[in-house]
Each structure stands twice: as structure tokens, then as C-alpha cells.
Design a protein around this nucleic acid. Sequence first.
DNA 1: GGTTCAATTCGAAGCGCTTCGACGCTGCGG
DNA 2: CCGCAGCGTCGAAGCGCTTCGAATTGAACC
Lengths: 336, 336
Amino acid sequence: MATIEDVARAAGVSASTVSYVLSGKRSISGPTRKRVEQAIAELNYRPHAGARALASSRTNVIGLMAPLRSGVDVAVIMQFVTGVVTRARAADHDVLLLTQDDAGGLERVAAGSMVDAIIVMDVEADDPRIPVLRGLRQPTVLIGLPRDPAGLSCVDLDFEAAGRLGASHLADAGHREVALVGPPPEVMARHTSYADRVLRGFRHTCAHRSLAGDVEPCEATPEGARAAVDAILDRAPGTTGFMVHNERALPHVLARLEQHGRSVPGAASVVALCPTDVATAQAVPLTSIDIPGEVIGGVAVDMVLARLGGEQPAESRLLTPELTQRASTGPRASAA
Amino acid sequence: MATIEDVARAAGVSASTVSYVLSGKRSISGPTRKRVEQAIAELNYRPHAGARALASSRTNVIGLMAPLRSGVDVAVIMQFVTGVVTRARAADHDVLLLTQDDAGGLERVAAGSMVDAIIVMDVEADDPRIPVLRGLRQPTVLIGLPRDPAGLSCVDLDFEAAGRLGASHLADAGHREVALVGPPPEVMARHTSYADRVLRGFRHTCAHRSLAGDVEPCEATPEGARAAVDAILDRAPGTTGFMVHNERALPHVLARLEQHGRSVPGAASVVALCPTDVATAQAVPLTSIDIPGEVIGGVAVDMVLARLGGEQPAESRLLTPELTQRASTGPRASAA
DNA sequence: GGTTCAATTCGAAGCGCTTCGACGCTGCGG
DNA sequence: CCGCAGCGTCGAAGCGCTTCGAATTGAACC
């Protein structure tokens, strides 16, 4: 491997000059720059990442903790990951991927100076990783919103607003008895940030608009979906509006509604809270509120890099949810 | 941040001794080791990754190129990724994730000594990344099988055997007219390694057992699935055996068969080639040949680390596919 | 008692890069 | 005509670690 010395020799300059050509931190005359650039090209020189990190205490690597927990749809996770990697690359950074949900991993890559910054996904209300994060030298961005975000940067879809939006949409269409088919029970039990928030928003709107609002967590399996739908219709047979926040269960919820004779959107309306591509990939294209994973991942990178640069304070950003009407919602049947 | 010097001072030894305690490359007496370990713990010392990489030319990072191409199911990709990360961590390595499918990315991380080794996913028959790979200093493992694997390490499910196995299973059940519902056309057009191989195996068995074997690529959408099923039944209305190699289309293929009055498994049998969890998550639990993504990812790590260690030669490993009978296949109706 | 040898530990030389202070040069104003 | 300010470049120090050869010590042996 060629070193910076080799390049310097080939170009007839000193190593520091080559370094300045590369970094642009001091001005270099046109001719000199040309010679150096040519030498770099001829030798196919690449700076040694370790040496660079050692000398500059910058790695140009962002750590991404994307825990693969039961109950969360990996396809959705992958969208966030894609957003992070894409945006990071655009800013000349690489991504180190952590999938184990251990605070130790954070500690290791941060204290070992493997990364300049860290992005953490799938945050819980009282996430045990948060204290660790607070102690790190590197800036951090959470994707999700913990109970106490003070001093932390966070970004996410405004899931509480999404919960309100879904319920309002159903209410606007005349539905009086509505239900939220939620994520799997274990996701709720962990108090996963987004799950709690959707719930809160949904309940809030139900209360304000005097809707009968039922909530049922739902395993991401055909049986789980059947059981959830059955439970809801058992408790409140008059339920006509459904909000579903569970990608994997979605097709089976729809199927079960059909089996109950509640055709969509004729006899029942369904609003999905999921990435647009899964909403449109169902048998009936679903009215949905998008979870823009790639966008959020990208924003997370922007935020973390901003904090690396200047002395930006921590901030939280919640993206406004948008509902797109498709074929799964309509006016309440008896009202039609 | 504490440095190795700080630890050495605290323990009353030299820096090199601390280094040897950490690496175990020379014997250290019990008492000394104790003191050093205690100092490390007290100072919460972590070696600086960059410094270590510079001095040892080892990063303990594996590069993983997981391109997110259209037509490939991200959930499946994620299984491979999970396997890689998990196994890598078990061997004290981290994973740098590349999602852009550019040979330049490989070049960059390899030539810049950011990684010790590279694993490449989603290989095509004549993958343009292969020449680059051959030129790298770092060992490489492909997940997939290119046309000419000479000198490269490869690992994958034996998709050709899987194609044969699926067709044989249908033939054994008495089906004489069978069809392969394949991946999306763009995946086929790229000559994605696994797609080509399944096709070859499927056709091979059809020929040898005198089956009428149809093949139809399939977009991963409801419409695509409908179109594919319709096309097959249009060309060969007597088709009763289906092999589906397309996770996203699976539910819609099943639905369309029902719509044609071909109930599964009564009037049509379906063998899926997909991860077990997607096979069991369908409305009818599907007889399937598993794609063991996590296992393959793990093996890829084992292979690449083996080559880092000794002077192992390149080798190819194809895992034998296994078919699990579930509720979607049965004897041909007219034979029953 | 002198040697030899093994077991431990130390010191120093880098690994390849960044960065800071310094230096030589040119062109300007006084 | 001299001094001074910039500009462009260089040299050297150091980032924190690994690793090799060498030094030290104590035990074992003759």
C-alpha cells in the first residue's frame, strides 16, 4: 500500500503538503496541487483510516444501533437503516452496524473511538441505553422519543399525531365505534416509544370526539390477527372503524374482517399506520399514514453530523404524519 | 480518555506489558496481570481502535456489502445481515455496512484499511464487483455463486438442488404439470445467482421426470401475482403444482389460486422457497424449502475469518436444502 | 560460586497521518 | 530601499498502540 510519503516523494513535496491537498485546510498553489493529485492517482493512494483516526480523532464512521427485537418488522427497520446509510455516505461517512441491544456495544464502539457519533433505534420510554448514551463523548441521536428527552437529540414520526389523525379520519367518515389493532403485546409491554405514543394519540381523539375506542395488541401472525379481530368484534360488535399499526398482521386482519362479513371498505374501514409500500401491496390498497423510515434515518444523520460540526444544542424533531386516502376507508355503512 | 500509558502508570508497569496482558501474546505473571486488569477496570480503559489498527494492521471490522436492489425482499436480506453481525460479534468483530452496489465502495473501505475482510451479498452470474474483489488485499466471501468462482470463497444455499427438490416433491405427489413462479423480472434479468440456479434445477427435474414445467417471473405486487398466475393457467390450465420463489408475491399467488377455484392444497399444491417464518405466516402454512439466511451469514463470517487466520485456500460451500411438508401440498386432485 | 536458562518485563522503534509553528519568498506601502 | 504581510511549503512532534530485541531476575545445575 502506498503511503502519504510515497505520494509526497512522487510529487516532489513534503507529506504535510499532500495532507493539505487532501484536506483543503491550507491553501496550496495550483501547480503543486496538480502534481500531488496526479501522484495520488498514479499510486492509487488511499489514506489509512486508522492512521487518520489516530491523528485527527475523527473516524468518519457513524455507529447505528438497530436492535432486531421480536415483534418489530424487519422490513421497516431496514428502511430506517437504508436512510441512515444513504445519507451518511452522501456526507462521506460510513456506518458501523450494531444489532445487539446491549449498552455494552455502545460503550465499546464509543469508548474505543470506532465511531464519531451514534444513532440509536427502537427506543423505549425508559430505555436502559439512555444513561450510557449520556455518558459518551460522541454525539447521539435517538430515533424515537424516550420519556425524558432532555439533553438528547431525537427524531421520529409524530406517532401521537398519527394516532390522532387515524382516529379523526375514521370519525370524519362517520364511524362511532373504532378500534386500534396495535403492535404485538411484547412491543407494548416494552413501552416501545412509538407504540405508547400512537396509543395516547388514538385515545385522546376518541375521548374528544366521543368515539367508543377499543385497543387490542396483535401478534404478527395469522392466528394473532384472527384473535385480535375476534376479540374486538366480540367486545364491540358495532365496530366499523379500524386503525392497524402492525405491518405483518395487516393482511390477516383484512382477511379476518372479510370472514366476519365486514367487507372493506363497504362494511368496515381500515386505516393503516405503516410504510406506504406495504399499504399499497395489500389485496385492497389501504388508506394509510406513512412511516417514512428512509426520511427519518436521513434526518437522524443530518442531526448527528450537525452536532459534530458546530456546537448545536440537542433538539427533538417530530415529523408531521400524513394520511393518504386509498380504497380501504369510506363512510360508515349504516350512514351510507 | 485513558490511554495505555495511563494504565501502565497506574499498574506500575510499562505500556508494553499492558499490551501483552490485553493480547495474551506473551506470558505475564499472575500478580502483574491482576494489577493491570485492575487498573484497566478502574480507569475504564478501552484501546483506541485507530491506534490499534495502525500498529497491528488489524481492524477487527468486517465489511458487509448488502445492496438493496429492487425486487429483493429486504426482510430476507436482513436475515443474512443478522447472521453476519451476530457471528461476527461472537468472534469479536464489528460490521461495517455498505448498501450501495458500487465497486468503488469496496475499493474505498478495503484500500483505506477500514476492514479486515469483506462479505458480498446478492451476487450475479458475472458480477462486476468480482474483478475488484480479486484485486483486494483482504479476503473475501461471496454469498451466492458467480459463473466463475475460481479463486473466490463462496457460500450459499444450494439453490439448484432446491429447484430440483421442489419439482421432485410435486412430481412425487403426482403432479404432472407444474410451474415455477419466480422472482421479479428484473432479478432474473440481472442473472442474480440464486434465481438462475433455481431455474436450472427446476428445469432439470422437469426434464428428467417428464413434467410439463412452466416458468413465470413475478412482480412482488398483488397485480404481479395475479398476472403471473393468470399467465400460467392460461398457457397450461392443467397446472396443479406450483413452486413459488418470491416472498412478497406469495400471499397474492395463493389468493389468486383461490379465485381461480384452485383451493390449496385440494386443487393445487404450492411449495414455497423462502425463509421458514414467511412460509408459516401465510393464511395456509406452506410446505417450504427454507432459505436459512442467518445460518448462511454466519458461515460466511466463519469462512472469511478462517482465511484471515491461516492460509486457507478459497472454497465454495453449498448448503443442502431441506423441504418441510406443511399444509399446502398434497396429491394431485384427479389422482386422489 | 559461577553459569546457564527460562520466565518476565522493559524500552524503543515504528505504524501513517494531521497539525502547528516556522521559514522563505514575493509584492506592497512608506 | 527597507520592512512587513501574506502565501505556500516544510519539518517535526505526536496521536495510542504493537512488537521485537534486550535486560533483569531468580532458580537450577555443575
